[in-house]
């Protein structure tokens, strides 16, 4: 069954990716034409996956569409040769020589490191422990929800801390969220 699933998914992905590529290569890069091809890909795959069990089907989908996209990239390289339209050269040149480009990152590096790493870890950990305690789900589901939530919540905190120019505002937010999470956790222990 695995092999049937594998070949079937490969087939669907191939057709879909060729479709997307064909439209793209004709430079019909309007949003709806691509969306229609992508929709076909998604709809066909979801239907296919559900018939075999969602957990098995989706992982094949994750893997195979990317492989075929890469095959298409190689096809493009082989057929069309070299690249194409250099866009916005001036802007790119300006960016590459601009010494201020990474200025934000260089401000308060130690504080930023703590906001992205240890503090974000602690705050996220507290938030997820709250999810384990308060989420209205069965206990096994709560634990899995928390471990899946963890990287996503951390991603939000880390992105904000790494990219923001107003780092003290992010520090304030992290402390505020952390305090609320800590108090809720304290309440869960005391009750």
């Amino acid at each position: 069954m695995f092999l049937n699933l594998f070949h079937g998914t490969l087939l669907i992905n191939t057709i879909s990716m060729v479709l997307i590529y064909a439209r793209w290569s004709k430079r019909q890069t309007n949003f709806f034409s691509i969306l229609s091809a992508l929709s076909l890909l998604f709809a066909a795959l979801v239907g296919w996956c559900l018939s075999f069990g969602i957990e098995v089907g989706f992982i094949y989908w994750f893997m195979t569409n990317a492989l075929f996209a890469w095959l298409m990239v190689l096809v493009e390289l082989g057929l069309a040769g070299v690249d194409d339209k250099p866009r916005n050269k001036l802007l790119r040149k300006k960016r590459s020589v601009n010494p201020q480009r990474h200025k934000i990152v260089r401000e308060y590096p130690l504080l930023r490191f703590h906001l992205v790493g240890p503090l974000a870890f602690i705050v996220t950990f507290l938030c997820c422990l709250n999810a384990i305690y308060w989420a209205p789900l069965e206990i096994a589901n709560r634990w899995v929800l928390a471990t899946i939530l963890f990287p996503i919540v951390w991603a939000v905190f880390a992105t904000l801390a790494a990219g923001s120019s107003d780092i003290f505002r992010i520090l304030g937010w992290q402390l505020f969220v952390g305090s609320i999470a800590f108090l809720l956790l304290l309440r869960s222990v005391l009750t």
Partner: peptide, 29 residues
């Protein structure tokens, strides 16, 4: 692992022409 999730999410958001550049590869640039 969590940081890799972060990099994936902000990597997606950082790309200005996601659909337009689906197959773009300047191999000889």
């Amino acid at each position: 692992g969590a940081i890799l999730c972060t990099l994936i999410i902000n990597g997606w958001l950082a790309h200005p022409n996601l659909i337009k550049d689906l197959f773009r590869l300047r191999w000889h640039g």
